[in-house]
Simulated scan of single mutants.
Amino acid sequence: MRKVEVVPYKKEWPKLFHDECQKLQDIFGPEMMNSYHIGSTSIPAIHAKPIIDILAVVKDVECVADFNKEMEGIGYDAMGENGMAGRRFFRKGGDERTHHIHMFQEGHEEISRHLAFRDYLLSHPDEAQKYSRLKQCLAAEFPMDIKGYVNGKNDFIKKVDEKAKHWAANEGDHHVDEVD
């Protein structure tokens, strides 16, 4: 059973992201096109579960399984699609989770959705703070129920996804934290 822990932003999270991206680049080489820091740890000044979420863009998602042994060698569990068509998901740390890798093939619609959500919150600090407060309340309400915590965020995330989609269409692409 995983405890739901939400903590204040930590200044070392960007470094943990960059360090892990270097490991992924070493494993995947030219198959990996880009990687992005996503999720709440990518947004300074908000509370987050202390798990670094990385969105990695690959040339061919069908080839990702060829690297599962190497990923296991650096501590990841390969989870396949894990409920999302076209994704390859890896988690590191077991019940003391430290990293999630969300791999998608170039052009998958989830890439722009994740980046728009992150970029919208980075550009709208009031919305980011609402999200932070919601996460803190849900962690207090569901300390041993990750499903309850996740379900409690769904409506907020859907609303922000819609706002972010519209905002991204009008603002253009402003993605940060790319690692080539």
Rank of each mutant, 00 (worst) to 15 (best):
M1E: 06
V6P: 13
Y9S: 06
K10E: 15
K10R: 15
K10S: 12
K11L: 13
E12C: 04
E12A: 05
W13I: 15
K15A: 15
F17T: 09
F17K: 09
H18Q: 14
D19P: 02
D19I: 05
Q22S: 05
K23I: 11
K23W: 07
Q25D: 00
Q25T: 11
F28G: 04
F28E: 04
G29C: 08
G29K: 15
P30T: 07
E31P: 01
E31C: 06
E31M: 13
M32H: 01
M32R: 02
M32Q: 02
M33F: 01
M33D: 03
N34E: 14
H37Y: 07
H37V: 11
I38W: 02
I38L: 01
I38M: 04
G39A: 09
G39N: 04
G39R: 05
S40R: 07
S42M: 10
P44L: 12
A45L: 07
I46M: 10
I46E: 09
I46S: 09
K49Q: 05
K49V: 01
P50D: 06
I52V: 15
D53Y: 01
D53C: 03
L55A: 02
L55M: 09
K59C: 02
D60M: 00
N68Y: 14
E70P: 00
E72W: 01
G73N: 14
G75Y: 03
Y76D: 01
Y76T: 02
E81S: 05
N82F: 15
A85H: 04
R88D: 05
F89A: 10
R91Q: 13
G93C: 13
D95N: 13
D95R: 12
D95I: 12
T98L: 06
M103T: 07
F104K: 07
Q105N: 03
E106Y: 12
G107L: 09
G107F: 03
G107C: 12
H108K: 06
H108I: 01
S112R: 14
S112G: 07
S112P: 00
S112Y: 08
R113M: 06
R113D: 02
R113Y: 00
L115K: 06
L115S: 13
A116V: 05
R118N: 07
D119G: 00
L121E: 13
L122H: 08
L122T: 08
H124G: 11
P125R: 10
P125L: 13
A128E: 11
K130Q: 14
Y131S: 11
R133C: 02
Q136K: 14
Q136A: 12
C137H: 14
A140E: 15
A140P: 00
E141A: 14
D145M: 04
G148I: 10
G148M: 07
Y149G: 06
V150G: 04
N151A: 14
G152W: 05
G152R: 04
N154M: 07
I157N: 05
I157A: 08
K158Y: 05
K159H: 12
E162P: 00
A164F: 09
W167M: 10
A168D: 15
A169V: 03
E171T: 14
G172I: 04
V176M: 08
V176E: 11
D177W: 02
D180L: 09
D180H: 11
D180S: 06
